[in-house]
Design a protein around this nucleic acid. Structure first.
Length: 415
RNA sequence: GUGGGUGUAGCUCAGCUGGCUAGAGCACCAGAUUGUGGCUCUGGGGGCCGGGGGUUCGAAUCCCCUCACUCACCCCA
């Protein structure tokens, strides 16, 4: 028997509906903030991610689905959404349009990881990217949009904020951090990180490393005056919108392109996979990918994990909906013709396709959780009056066949 | 990539230290009720016991390998 590939899954109608709702709510929110949808291919040239995401990141080092096509080109299933959006921004010279330029995306990403709770090889992200606004208000808008999404869904999340400064700040900080940590007791990974990318040590969950970091210098003490000012204004802007947050100087994100603001939305309800989303500012990426120097800030939210939290906004109540048409010979053909007329007028109608008896058809109406059973048999055609049964209460009434479509459309629980 | 747990019907599981045609509940289909669902009763369809190999007169059960799922580490959404 075939199964879905490891780390991927099928979405059966009930869950697919939940994902559709999450997408619709995200798209609606993005539009309210003035973001337009930008769809990019599922795969890109591998080099885009190598350069855009960063050679030394986990994503590029070990998580990419990379393959060679028949033209000997190296392609990669997109592991994240920002690099492709930036590529499109540059390729279509969108920087020539009105600034700032604001885009959102929603779709699957691919990472070759060992699956576990809340971690998949094909995962869905909703993200936004804002180009051309260097000031802190842009950071605040993006962070607020993500916060707003959680609020509308009714999902609890904690906002964690940090600033990793600019290249200049980090030179000084890295020196301080390396000299502080050198010679201390850390895990093997961190010892190598110390040389290659010392900021990653901050992200280590190892107890020994955490202990070593207790009194380590923090990046926020090394921000240059402009970066400090920017960070202060981001915090003030969030406070002004009554968005609560905590500052975590250890928050370092796994992609190389960030500068200044970084943030994550976390949950306590998913075990060890606590990140629901995150983002930050990436002022150098557009230029790195061949465009004009353009400041930018963005975020990405993990839809799979959010869905796992059972957002209250997705509760549909589980009520009955729609109409089941009960047919019987020799009047079935005529009844079915009427059903199609009802469908053309927007009424959702199902009917028996297996030549089952009346009793079984009512049972089907029940099992499919239809709100109404509409009986049209020989007697009804003769009298011109259809029998309508409320499958919730059991009450029955008669409807005039000539006006049945309008009457049904007006009923509760039809759609 | 490293480590732990689990694989028996569509689902949840039982099956003792190897021993009759492998079971239950739920679900599905039908009948009891030849134009009325939910409750009840009766009946029915469904299993290469994850796969392969081994031990044995005999394996769902014991051993080895493998695959899958799952949880955790790393890291992230």
């Amino acid at each position: 028997m075939f199964r879905v590939p490891r780390g991927t899954r099928d979405f059966l109608p009930e869950q697919a509906e939940r994902f559709r709702s999450l997408e619709n709510l995200a798209a609606d929110l993005a539009r309210r903030y003035g973001y337009g949808e930008l769809r990019t291919p599922i795969f890109e040239y591998t080099e885009l991610f190598e350069r855009g995401v960063g050679e030394s990141t986990d994503i590029v080092e070990k998580e990419m689905y990379t393959f060679t096509d028949r033209g000997e080109r190296s392609l990669t299933l997109r592991p994240e959404g920002t690099a492709p959006v930036v590529r499109a921004f540059v390729e279509h010279k969108l920087y020539t349009g009105p600034m700032p330029a604001k885009y959102y995306y929603f779709g699957p990403m691919f990472r070759y990881e060992k699956p576990q709770a809340g971690r998949f090889r094909q995962l869905w992200q909703f993200g936004v990217e804002l180009f051309g606004a260097p000031g802190p208000r842009a950071d605040v808008e993006v962070i607020a949009l993500g916060w707003h999404y959680f609020r509308e869904l009714g999902v609890e999340s904690r906002l964690v904020l940090n600033s990793i400064g600019c290249v200049q700040c980090r030179i000084g900080y890295k020196e301080a951090l390396v000299s502080f940590l050198t010679g201390r007791d850390m895990c093997r990974d961190c010892c190598s990180r110390l040389e290659r990318n010392p900021l990653r040590v901050l992200d280590c969950k190892n107890d020994g490393c955490r202990a070593a970091l207790e009194s380590a210098p923090v990046i926020t003490d090394y921000l240059c005056p402009p970066c400090r000012e920017h960070f202060d204004q981001v915090k003030a802007g969030l406070a002004g919108l009554n968005i609560p947050f905590t500052v975590d100087p250890l928050l370092v994100r796994g992609l190389d392109y960030y500068n200044r603001t970084t943030f994550e939305y976390k949950t306590d309800a998913l075990g060890s996979q606590d990140a629901l989303g995150g983002g930050g500012r990436y002022d150098g990426l557009v230029e790195l990918l061949g465009g004009p120097g353009t400041p930018a800030v963005g975020l990405a939210l993990g839809i799979d994990r959010i869905e796992m939290l059972n957002p209250p906004a997705l509760d549909t109540g589980g009520g009955r909906r729609g109409v089941w048409l009960v047919t019987m010979e020799p009047a079935a053909a005529e009844a079915i013709a009427l059903a199609h007329e009802l469908r053309r007028k927007g009424v959702p109608v199902q009917y028996d396709l297996l030549a089952r008896g009346v009793k079984a058809q009512f049972k089907q109406a029940d099992r499919h959780r239809c709100r109404w059973a509409l009986v049209i048999g020989p007697d009804e055609l003769e009298s011109g009056r259809a029998v309508l049964r409320d499958m919730e209460s059991g009450d029955q009434q008669q409807l005039n066949l000539a006006t049945v479509a309008d009457e049904l459309a007006a009923l509760e629980g039809v759609k």
